[in-house]
Nucleic acid binder design. Structure first.
Lengths: 210, 210
DNA sequence: AGGGAATTCAAGCGACTGTTTGACTTCTCT
DNA sequence: AGAGAAGTCAAACAGTCGCTTGAATTCCCT
């Protein structure tokens, strides 16, 4: 019982910490790094302004933490989706797996959508010293290259990396731009039917298809 | 002589107006709407802070003017590039024409790159009341649909519009994300050789190619 | 019960935001 | 030459920014 109370107490502080993290993620997704203010976050999280300094040290540190959390969450989902693929998967199946986390987030909305939008924004405006965390990105890319090169043995690896980055960029764009909201409003299977051919076509390339 | 002096005077005011517009475009491209401050613009343009109120009325109005100018400039270039196409152009030629303004801007850097990046950012974070200007967008899209539907008669028009929006989104992403800087550093013909197949593949789709 | 750590709070800090003001210069026109 | 329009300038405005402070509160532990 004593232990449980200690945990409750510890969780009380943790709870406002988490609310701050969530609020920051939500607002980062909406307006980007430059557009989020301290008071907006604290109001949204129903916390005092000084709670940010107390729990994170500074507003910048809170944003970094929110971004890092979002990045890990998204990359884990994407790595898992690709890892679950059959080793002999075709380009279309790969494209579908690659797009799955984003489509799921679009359909779900809320926190999941905020996570993916935050990730997409980081791809455009990376925070100050953001050289770390590139490792996980590269791992995700390596996994996909491995599967993709099985389907397209004629294309150089360097070229495959480029196409994967294009596909990822397209997904990021869809998450951020108004077109993403349109896709979220239609049935997921319809979105998949429209999006997967585009993604797969980009990965496969045209000149090879003749 | 009197006339010339009058013009000179009139151009003196016009010149700081243009410098403000250029500086605003440059900074909008770099940091987005929320990240640009009045003093940063005026310092960059070597103008007084009140020059913004004088020439544009407000900081917001200056940003709107800079964005509108950039949008028109880019859309005109894109419409022209597509209009110059042969009526019987294939998907690859269309993709090349579609990508040309962006690739040109990437290679040129400076003002042209700022214009295209500003346009791309507007695609993600449209200014407050930005319902106008959608007309020119739609015109550009209609032109491309017309050419594309000649190459892909089996695909519904609604579907072609979706694919074109994806292609445009990808180009916008390349203009903004770090990968764009990498592309700008390599020879343009190499970029074209890598990018056009991806774009064409996306437009053509995969499931149709079998 | 009560010392002490953890957390929350209202209030205020200096720095910066966009905007306004009124004097000042520059040039036009008669 | 001189009235007046057009443009520029330094200075100050109220408001918001991120951050800090010191007291008050909440809860753990002995």
């Amino acid at each position: 019982m004593v232990r449980e109370r200690a945990d409750q107490r510890r969780e009380a502080g943790q709870r406002t910490r988490d609310r701050l993290l969530s609020a920051a993620q939500e607002l980062l997704a909406q307006r980007g790094q430059e557009g989020v203010t301290l008071r907006e976050v604290t109001d949204h999280a129903e916390a005092n302004v000084s709670a940010v300094s107390y729990h994170f040290g500074s507003m910048k540190a809170l944003c970094d933490a929110a971004i890092e959390q979002a990045l890990e969450q998204y990359l884990d989902a994407q790595i898992a989706a690709v890892a679950a693929l059959d080793a002999a998967a075709g380009v279309e199946e790969l494209a579908a797996a690659f797009a799955r986390p984003m489509m799921h987030a679009l359909a779900a909305g809320g926190r999941e959508l905020a996570v993916i939008r935050t990730v997409a924004r980081v791809g455009i405006d990376p925070p100050e010293g953001w050289d770390r965390l590139t490792g996980k990105f590269q791992q995700s890319r390596r996994d996909i290259v491995r599967v993709l090169s099985a389907s397209l043995p004629a294309v150089e690896e360097q070229e495959l990396v480029f196409r994967i980055r294009c596909a990822a960029g397209l997904l990021n764009w869809l998450a951020l731009a108004p077109i993403g909201a349109e896709l979220a409003a239609e049935p997921p299977e319809r979105t998949a039917r429209r999006l997967v051919p585009v993604l797969a076509g980009a990965l496969r390339g045209l000149s090879d298809a003749g």
